[in-house]
């Protein structure tokens, strides 16, 4: 066979094989596109979860379960079934989440939640001076929407594994409470939280004993939790910190928190 003849035979085979590949890919293409959309949604939910973890857990809790007195749960039945009609929103819940996250809230719509102070919820979109891009906000909404089967009770909610702390000591229990009770929403404590609504707690143990005469460090911190207005640090306004910690927490829990704060800030 001459070289040119071989090339004609091989070339024809290559063209036919290429056509076959394109046809096979074409037959598979609708399925691939459908899979890709699902996969894209999955990755969006994953991404939203990590954005939520970095930005939203301080007020809305580590699993979006809300923090008493600060911010509502975003995964309960009320949120998925009642919230839209309560607020009078015409579009979907996902769009509602996007809208609220984008523009924030100047004032809380519900008196039982004070939010992070003023504004109650900051604007999160970078268009309005916040830190998040549109695709990040969309991803957060996708993540929250994925709670629906738990919220409606279609699937049992698994028990979360909290931060690994030694629960056998008062300090360990106090550390867990520091997150769960929402202290991290407003107070900075190096290594745990970075919020700036309330005074930073770093070095608290050193100055607590001398802040209010007549009170020991433990007594002062205890009083600040149960009756925040008794002494307000200069530069901060009264009535911002929730007044009801004595009702939410037991006496033992408050003592654990005090022990943790003393231990941690020495």
């Amino acid at each position: 066979m001459k070289r040119v003849q071989l090339e004609i035979v091989l070339g024809t085979i290559f063209v036919l094989l290429s056509a076959a590949i394109i046809i096979i890919l074409g037959i598979r293409e609708p399925q691939r596109l459908a899979d890709y959309v699902l996969q894209q949604r999955a990755r969006q939910i994953e991404f939203g979860a990590s954005v939520f973890q970095t930005n939203c857990t301080a007020c809305h809790g580590s699993g979006a379960q809300g923090i008493t007195g600060i911010a509502p749960s975003l995964r309960d039945e009320h949120f998925f079934t009642q919230r839209l009609s309560e607020i009078g929103w015409g579009s979907t819940l996902e769009d509602y989440i996007v809208s609220v996250v984008t523009t924030g809230r100047q004032v809380s719509t519900r008196p039982q939640y004070v939010g992070g102070g003023s504004p109650a919820m900051p604007t999160w979109s970078e268009k309005f001076g916040g830190p998040l891009r549109d695709d990040q906000i969309r991803a957060v909404a996708a993540y929250l929407m994925n709670f629906e089967p738990y919220a409606l009770g279609l699937l049992p909610t698994p028990v979360p594994i909290g931060p690994v702390v030694d629960e056998s000591t008062p300090e360990g229990r106090g550390q867990a409470l520091f997150t769960q009770a929402g202290c991290i929403a407003c107070h900075t404590l190096t290594g745990i939280s970075t919020a700036t609504v309330g005074p930073a707690l770093d070095g608290l143990a050193g100055r607590a004993a001398s802040t209010v005469s007549g009170l020991t460090a433990e007594e002062y911190i205890h009083q600040s939790i149960v009756d925040p207005n008794a002494y307000v640090v200069t530069g901060y306004t009264p009535d911002v910190m929730p007044q009801n910690f004595a009702e939410i927490l037991t006496e033992d829990q408050i003592n654990d928190l005090v022990a943790f704060l003393i231990d941690r800030t020495q």
Partner: peptide, 10 residues
Amino acid sequence: FLHENRVLGS
């Protein structure tokens, strides 16, 4: 965070 649909099909 790992979602079950993160890898699908091909």
